[in-house]
Design a protein around this nucleic acid. Structure first.
Length: 1088
RNA sequence: GGAGACGUAGCUUAAAGAGUAAAGCACCACCCUGAUAAGUUGGAGAAUAGAAGUUCGAGUCUUCUCGUCUCUACCA
């Protein structure tokens, strides 16, 4: 057994991490893992941002728990971490770095150069992140060989998905409106939308009737720019419409909308000449086929072309589905190029899809005078034109949620484009069915949240018009009439078909691969699109599985036993995983799934712009900002403001405010640095973050709570320090003592039982993946069962001076339970437990010893030690002790003062009471008796549910002496302590008193005193001594009334000496100068 | 617009099925203490966001209101 260091978590962690590295422990772990028994875990790949924030840390730590646990349970664990490397985030970052603003500039810069930059960036972030993850204690992962989505092998795995989906008839191309990001110039899928509140102008416009120039149709829109592409008006065949007289015109609108628009918005009076009147009412069906004049027909000449192409253009069409009564004006402006519903109705009526907007959100030449303008900037111009034409009826301001790009936060534009889709709607039922079979923690994550998401799933748009991503392996014939399509499933296949395949499968190299169409002889070219990044990680199950049977062979993939991610992955990874698996293989690819929430700080989301982000390094360095309640409140307000103002340019004031507060909160400070200066390192966070919240809920990183956790680990560590010290003092050799169960004391038996029970519960929690309950269970065991109870019980016994014959058995039991605890704590706190294992246990484990605690197995539950009855009895004993302490306190009897007897009077039959000794010791009574009726005497009593508890306060000489000696001992110990005497240092002690009874008490307990305070020699004086200034001198006072002998506190003694009256706490009599006894204490340190 | 939540002491969280509203931290007092930034006992502190209903009985079930959050949408 080696000496343990003081608890400095950070220093210990760093030393252990080095040691693991140096000793190559990970290699040994992999070597020791079995071949067959596999626990298949798949890591959801974080994006290569280069920075591991607290949420990512939490995520990895939770995973690390289970990896370590399952390993101890004898599984081979798939521990390959992953990195997501493709997609817009890096492209956007590279654009910023290069000072580029759009796609065209990227092409000008050079596609190859740009993609190389992206790759370079992604690859450069990985080693950084590896190190950050390792520092969290997530060390024994396959960091040297993570799966990375940009690798060729990985890309081929995705190609396999595409090919399988195509074979299954689930990959198709379609032309329809999609939300597109104008800045990134690509289509986006629905999991890439971010909704934010924006203010827009909503306008009421009147469309002139062709049949009657004084008749107008009223429509309402929040996106004036889509009027350019308007082709129709929709009416609900079942709704009621009305011909309103408005001044000298006839306006046609839904009856439900009239009052709102005319009376309240336009403030017209009913019946007045310049007001309005109700006219003929009729059903929507009557409106079908009515022609109107497009309000921008002069500005957008192409509209005339459309009319020629299809006479139904610029007429009213019917839709009962998409026109509701309550909203707008009952007639709906329809632009099939700019809205899915418009598109659908357009298709049903054979209306051409007019989309005069390009990928960048700019009007094309088909938009006439608007050509080249950005759509969101054109709203105002269009409004002005409409005003001039006198067709604008009213402008309203409306606040609504609008979709933005998840990456660059641009407002999206709905426009028709040709995209590739997975036909996930067709497989919806299968997905729901497969989802039912997934074991979710918490249950509602899967069976409510994810189910709802799946129920609303639409076809997945997988194509993106970007550069940095996996190229779609789809080649089409350039001859438009031919329509030949070839989907490629691997590099090998490409080589066979095209005769060549580039080294690097990314763009632009892959774009150069072409071949002759086998059907028509024209050229087969790859479509220029790349894939939605989400498909990258969705295919990990087979794409990361590089070789099976020595070659790429994807369709043998095995579902993951377990995955674990945050709640944002409902729409993200959980979704893309299941979709990819169903589309390619029609089965699910994960069997159980744990979902956690987000890390919050001070009740709000952590964000850099709010200045409340806490990084793992802050925690490791112990520099976490503590906010006052007022500051927290301010933060919450700020967060609320920011979420609305971010996308609303009108609120500039609040932005300024937030800058100010940023400055304020940037200053990191620690409240009472001295007190918490040890709260450093990551182990406290590892313990805290799992139990900090329930599964699926957000983790509120509250500093106080976090520090609370530190106290648990501090006690945990000190417990080992204490045990190690006692074992060494006793010259105890664990390997030389075997536990003889029959010989054990009851408390030893109890702690063995309690330990095994705890391990049993713990194992159940781990197996059910109820992670958040784990720390609470450990904490309760560490604090309540070991530190505050068992160790206290055996403290006297294992004191080497007491030479108790049972002490070696107890020490062995202590050693055993502490060893078990190290094992079960190893997944939670891998570094601290490693230190303990190395220093305290390794030398005594004999031939079973392992090089590292992480090569050990999870402890078996020793059923022979489990004694439920004993545990119950102990609980009962503790209950009695608590009640007695409370009773003594009520009567101002110090616990230190012994009492003659405790009588237990049962209400009904009691179970056996085997812990009489412990009750006697802890309640400090001379004897415990079980009686069936109240005895007589000087008694006080209390009651618990099982029995009556009675204390007999009758004094004996022994009790009186004890009252003096116990308090005296404590006083001397205290004096030693405050004067910085070490435990092993001895003193020369003089005790003097003039009072005979007190002197006799000292005399009778001479040996005890000498031992307890290490006095060699001890000199007892029956009389007075002179104070020696060179020594430590103290006067101990006591009450001499009626043989009370209770100690009197120093401040009270002073008052009594000054002739003030004071009542004795114990005997309640007045103490005067005469009845105040004194013991003079004088001592000095002995030279060695 | 739709859906899912959430609101319990100053703070952080508990309370299957309806049955006296817990615990930890913080606070106050007393006690204890030679492993412990530890511990004991007690105190103070919540009409469980508000209102109504069902019930012998509601933090728990129902409805509404207020507040907070998340997800989602074809807001024309």
């Amino acid at each position: 057994m080696k000496e343990l260091p003081e608890f400095d978590s950070r220093a210990i962690e760093e030393r252990i991490l080095d040691w693991w590295e140096k000793e190559k422990i990970y290699k040994e772990i992999k070597k020791a893992e079995p071949k067959d028994k596999v626990w298949r875990f798949i890591d959801g790949p974080p994006y290569t941002t280069g920075n591991v924030h607290l949420g990512t840390a939490w995520n990895k730590i939770l995973k690390d728990y289970l990896i370590r646990y399952k390993r101890m349970q004898g599984f081979r664990v798939t521990d390959t971490p992953g990195y997501d490397t493709h997609g817009l985030p890096i492209e956007v970052l590279m654009e910023q770095n290069l000072g580029i603003h759009n796609k065209k500039e990227i092409i000008d810069y050079g596609l190859e150069k740009f993609i190389d930059k992206c790759r370079e960036h992604a690859e450069s972030q990985i080693p950084k992140m590896n190190e950050q993850f390792k520092r969290l204690g997530c060390t024994f992962w396959n960091w040297e060989n993570p799966y990375i989505t940009l690798k060729n092998t990985y890309i081929q795995g995705i190609w396999w998905t595409l090919k399988e989906a195509y074979k299954n008839g689930l990959l198709y191309q379609f032309y329809k409106p999609q939300n597109c990001c104008p800045r990134c110039a690509t289509a986006l899928a629905k999991h890439e939308f971010e909704y934010h509140n924006v203010k827009d102008n909503a306008i009421f416009v009147k469309f002139q009737s062709v049949e009657d120039p004084k008749t107008f149709y009223l429509i309402w829109t929040t996106t004036p720019w889509t009027l350019v592409a308007n082709t129709n008006i929709m009416a609900n065949p079942n709704n009621e419409y009305v011909e309103m007289r408005v001044k000298d015109e006839t306006w046609i609108m839904g009856i439900a909308a009239t009052a709102n628009l005319l009376q309240f918005k336009l403030e017209l009076a009913r019946g007045e000449e310049d007001g309005f009147d109700y006219g003929r009412r009729f059903k929507g069906t009557e409106l079908e086929g009515k022609r109107y004049i497009h309000p921008l027909i002069d500005e957008v000449p192409y509209q005339k072309e459309l009319e020629k192409q299809q006479p139904k253009v610029h007429t009213i069409v019917l839709s009962s589905e998409y026109v509701t009564e309550g909203e707008g004006v009952g007639l709906v402006h329809t632009a099939p190029g700019h809205g899915p519903e418009d598109f659908e109705v357009g298709m049903a009526n054979n209306i051409p899809v007019f989309n005069p907007v390009d990928m960048h959100g700019k009007y094309t030449d088909e938009a006439g005078i608007f050509e080249g303008k950005f759509v969101h900037d054109t709203n105002e111009e269009i409004i002005n034109i409409l005003k001039q034409k006198n067709t604008l009826v009213y402008i309203d301001e409306i606040e609504h949620e609008y979709a933005h790009c998840w990456r660059c936060k641009s407002k999206l534009v709905y426009r028709a484009t040709r995209q590739w889709f997975f036909k996930t709607t067709e497989l919806n039922e299968l997905m729901l069915k497969e989802n039912e079979d997934i074991y979710w923690v918490p249950d509602w994550a899967g069976h409510t949240n994810f189910r709802l998401w799946l129920e609303n799933l639409r076809d997945w748009c997988i194509s993106r018009q970007r550069f940095w991503g996996i190229p779609l392996s789809i080649w089409t014939c350039q001859n438009e009439d031919c329509e030949h399509i070839r989907v490629i499933g691997s590099a090998q296949e490409l080589k066979e078909v095209a005769g060549k395949c580039p080294e690097d499968l990314h763009r632009p190299h892959i774009d150069k691969v072409t071949w002759k169409c086998p059907k028509c002889g024209d050229i087969m070219k790859r479509i220029p699109d790349i894939l939605d990044v989400w498909l990258d990680s969705g295919s990990v199950m087979w794409a990361a599985q590089k070789f099976v049977d020595g070659k790429e062979h994807y369709d043998t993939w095995v579902p993951a036993d377990f995955i674990l991610e945050g709640k944002d992955q409902i729409r993200g990874w959980f979704n893309s995983l299941l979709c990819s698996a169903i589309v390619s293989s029609k089965r699910k690819n994960y069997n159980s799934c744990y979902m956690h929430g987000w890390v919050q700080s001070h009740g709000t989301k952590m964000s850099k712009s709010l200045g409340n982000a806490i990084e793992p390094e802050d925690i490791i360095r112990g520099e976490v900002e503590i906010l006052t309640e007022a500051q927290k409140e301010h933060l919450r307000k700020l967060a609320a403001e920011q979420s609305t103002s971010k996308f609303d340019k009108t609120k500039k004031k609040s932005k300024k405010k937030s800058k100010k507060s940023k400055k304020k909160s940037k200053k990191k400070y620690i409240k009472d640095n001295r007190r918490w200066s040890n709260v450093k390192g990551i182990e406290t966070f590892r313990f805290f973050c799992v139990g900090g919240t329930q599964a699926g809920r957000d983790l509120n990183f509250d500093y106080k709570e976090y520090v609370d956790t530190f106290k648990v680990l501090n006690t945990f560590w000190n417990m080992y320090l204490f045990a190690e010290e006692k074992m060494n003092l006793n010259d105890f050799k664990p390997s030389e003592v075997t536990i003889d169960y029959k010989q054990l004391s009851l408390e030893d038996k109890w702690v063995l039982s309690a330990t095994n029970t705890m391990i049993k519960h713990l194992t159940e929690l781990f197996d059910k993946y109820y992670l958040p309950d784990i720390p609470a269970l450990l904490q309760n065991y560490i604090l309540n069962d070991l530190s505050r109870w068992y160790i206290r019980l055996i403290r006297n016994k294992i004191d080497p001076n007491m030479e108790d014959p049972g002490r070696f058995q107890s020490l062995k039991v202590l050693w055993t339970v502490l060893y078990q605890l190290v094992l079960v704590m190893a997944p939670v706190n891998p570094m601290l437990t490693e230190e303990l294992y190395q220093k305290m246990f390794k030398d005594d484990l004999g031939k079973n010893v392992k090089k590292s605690v992480h090569l050990e197995s999870w402890p078996d539950i020793k059923q022979k030690y489990v004694d439920e009855k004993l545990e119950k009895e102990m609980n009962f004993a503790r209950k009695i002790i608590d009640s007695i302490r409370s009773l003594k306190m009520d009567h101002r009897i110090k616990l230190r003062w012994p009492t003659k007897a405790l009588y237990i009077i049962p209400k009904e039959e009691l179970d056996e009471l085997r812990f009489i000794d412990i009750i006697q010791q802890k309640a400090n009574v001379k004897e415990v008796k079980i009686l069936d009726k109240m005895p007589k005497g000087k008694l006080i009593e209390t009651e618990i549910s099982e029995c009556k508890l009675v204390l007999d306060l009758e004094d004996t000489k022994e009790i009186q002496q004890d009252r003096i000696i116990k308090d005296l001992l404590r006083t001397i110990q205290y004096l030693r302590k405050i004067n910085d005497f070490n435990i092993e240092e001895t003193i020369t002690l003089q005790l003097a008193t003039e009072h005979d009874f007190v002197f006799q008490a000292l005399k009778d307990n001479e040996e005890l005193i000498a031992t307890k305070v290490s006095a060699e020699p001890l000199d007892l004086v029956n009389g007075k001594i002179e104070e020696d200034k060179s020594q430590i001198y103290h006067e101990f006072h006591l009450c001499l009334n009626e043989s009370c002998y209770a100690s009197v506190r120093e401040k009270h003694a002073k008052k009594i000496k000054a002739n003030k009256k004071k009542q004795c706490n114990y005997c309640k009599n007045q103490i005067t100068k005469d009845s105040l006894g004194v013991i003079q204490i004088q001592f000095s340190k002995n030279e060695k």
